[in-house]
Amino acid sequence: MTRATPIPETITLHVPFRVVKRGGRKEMQLPDGAARSRSSDNTLVKTLARAFRWKRMLESGDFATIAELAEREGIAASYVTRVLRLTLLAPDIVEVILDGQQAPEVTLAILMKPLSEHWQNQNDAIR
Rank of each mutant, 00 (worst) to 15 (best):
residue 29 Q to F: 09
residue 89 L to H: 03
residue 119 W to C: 01
residue 44 L to W: 02
residue 56 R to I: 04
residue 65 T to C: 10
residue 94 V to L: 01
residue 15 V to T: 01
residue 115 L to E: 00
residue 75 I to W: 08
residue 18 R to T: 13
residue 70 A to P: 03
residue 120 Q to G: 07
residue 6 P to M: 07
residue 47 T to W: 04
residue 27 E to M: 07
residue 37 S to W: 03
residue 3 R to L: 09
residue 113 K to M: 06
residue 73 E to P: 02
residue 108 L to D: 00
residue 109 A to W: 05
residue 29 Q to S: 11
residue 110 I to F: 06
residue 106 V to C: 09
residue 65 T to S: 14
residue 57 M to Q: 15
residue 82 R to W: 01
residue 105 E to L: 12
residue 127 R to I: 05
residue 122 Q to R: 06
residue 101 Q to L: 09
residue 34 A to S: 14
residue 3 R to G: 09
residue 95 E to R: 09
residue 10 T to F: 14
residue 52 F to W: 13
residue 60 S to A: 15
residue 63 F to N: 04
residue 6 P to N: 08
residue 23 G to M: 01
residue 88 L to I: 05
residue 41 D to S: 03
residue 62 D to E: 15
residue 39 S to G: 13
residue 76 A to S: 11
residue 72 R to S: 13
residue 101 Q to V: 02
residue 55 K to W: 10
residue 65 T to A: 06
residue 73 E to I: 07
residue 78 S to P: 03
residue 102 Q to T: 08
residue 83 V to A: 00
residue 17 F to R: 00
residue 38 R to P: 00
residue 115 L to I: 10
residue 62 D to R: 15
residue 118 H to G: 07
residue 28 M to C: 10
residue 89 L to V: 05
residue 99 D to Q: 10
residue 26 K to H: 14
residue 32 D to R: 11
residue 82 R to G: 00
residue 112 M to S: 05
residue 15 V to I: 11
residue 9 E to D: 14
residue 65 T to N: 13
residue 50 R to Q: 10
residue 4 A to D: 10
residue 10 T to G: 04
residue 118 H to K: 14
residue 37 S to D: 12
residue 3 R to N: 06
residue 72 R to L: 03
residue 61 G to I: 11
residue 102 Q to R: 01
residue 34 A to C: 11
residue 83 V to D: 01
residue 2 T to F: 07
residue 111 L to D: 00
residue 101 Q to E: 10
residue 1 M to V: 11
residue 78 S to D: 05
residue 104 P to F: 13
residue 61 G to A: 13
residue 33 G to E: 03
residue 119 W to A: 02
residue 122 Q to W: 06
residue 37 S to H: 08
residue 23 G to Y: 04
residue 120 Q to E: 15
residue 26 K to A: 13
residue 38 R to C: 01
residue 45 V to M: 03
residue 117 E to A: 10
residue 24 G to N: 14
residue 76 A to L: 05
residue 91 P to S: 08
residue 63 F to L: 05
residue 113 K to D: 05
residue 38 R to L: 10
residue 50 R to S: 11
residue 97 I to P: 00
residue 86 L to Q: 02
residue 115 L to R: 06
residue 81 T to D: 07
residue 72 R to A: 15
residue 82 R to K: 14
residue 9 E to P: 12
residue 31 P to Q: 08
residue 82 R to P: 01
residue 51 A to L: 05
residue 91 P to Y: 10
residue 105 E to Q: 15
residue 64 A to Q: 12
residue 55 K to S: 14
residue 110 I to N: 06
residue 67 A to H: 07
residue 20 V to D: 11
residue 114 P to K: 03
